[in-house]
């Protein structure tokens, strides 16, 4: 138990305590974003890079609500459908923020937002050569996961289910295979719908979970953020505790000896 109190995980040389990474999209406003992130206990938040509105520069900015000194901003390439777009976006992100840790995702299809692994591999290679620390969104294919790790990605992040679907972990066997072979952190990225899904990911031995919609589109995002924090912690504890074996028949938990 004491050991678990110092249960940190390391991404690209930095130790993190919270194993929950949250997105900052889809919230009602920046106040709600800030409150949800606070409640989630997350130390890393994903952010997108977009054009500034030069006609109205006084619009509120995310950095005014979530202090980049307090939270690790993880710029993503959401909406990029080619390696070139993703690389361009992250180079801009590095200049905007001044750090190398990024989240790469190259999407392959509008309807499913399934990752395009050919473009993802290409982008990862270019970015790593360019000095980026790449956390990579990928399919739940162990061979692809291994290729990405071999290229030097600092975290492997297979989808649990399509982005924003809330379907939960559809393929626990594949996620487990990736966890078992990986020498870098593995995080389930996408597909979590509710707290039990996050717990399942952690019970499979994942190092963390990344989510956005499950919190932002809950009826009460702040309460769901807290639920996710607890679920990730509970799943982690359960993973280390080691679950009991499953049995086909009942096994009484009160002693039979001394029965009247």
């Amino acid at each position: 138990m004491t050991e678990r109190n110092h249960d940190t995980f390391n991404i690209a040389g930095t130790d993190f305590t919270s194993r929950l990474i949250v997105g900052t999209g889809k919230y009602k406003d920046f106040e709600e974003t800030a409150r949800a992130v606070e409640a989630s206990g997350a130390e890393i938040v994903t952010v997108a890079i977009r054009r500034v509105n030069v006609m109205d520069p006084n619009q509120p900015m995310l950095v005014d609500y979530l202090d980049p000194k307090k939270y690790t901003y993880l710029p993503n390439t959401a909406g990029c459908f080619s390696a070139d777009d993703a690389i361009r976006t992250l180079r801009l992100a590095r200049e905007a923020g001044g750090w190398d840790l990024v989240k790469l995702e190259v999407l392959g299809d509008q309807k499913t937002l399934y990752p395009n692994m050919v473009e993802t591999l290409h982008a990862a290679e270019v970015l790593i050569k360019d000095g980026f620390e790449v956390m990579v969104y990928c399919s739940d294919d162990p061979i692809m996961a291994q290729r990405l790790e071999d290229l030097g990605c600092c975290a492997i992040m297979p989808l649990g289910a399509p982005i924003g679907s809330g379907l939960g972990i559809q393929n626990p066997v594949q996620i487990r295979l990736i966890v078992e072979q990986a020498n870098v952190p593995v995080l389930v990225d996408a597909g979590v719908g509710t707290a039990s899904d996050a717990a399942v990911a952690m019970e499979l031995g994942c190092d963390g979970v990344l989510m956005n919609t499950a919190i932002a589109e809950a009826r009460d995002p702040i309460t769901m953020a807290r639920a996710m924090k607890l679920a990730v912690e509970a799943g982690r504890e359960a993973y280390f505790a080691g679950r009991m074996p499953k049995k086909l028949y009942a096994d009484p938990s009160s002693p039979l000896a001394g029965l009247i």
Binding site: V22, G23, T24, G25, K26, Y27, F30, T33, T46, V47, A48, I49, R50, R51, V52, M61, L62, V63, Y73, P75, N76, A78, L92, A93, A96, G97, E105, L113, Y137, I163, G164, D189, A190, M211, N212, T213, A216
Partner: peptide, 8 residues
Amino acid sequence: VHFIGGGK
């Protein structure tokens, strides 16, 4: 460009 709220 700048950072905006975004998940995936």
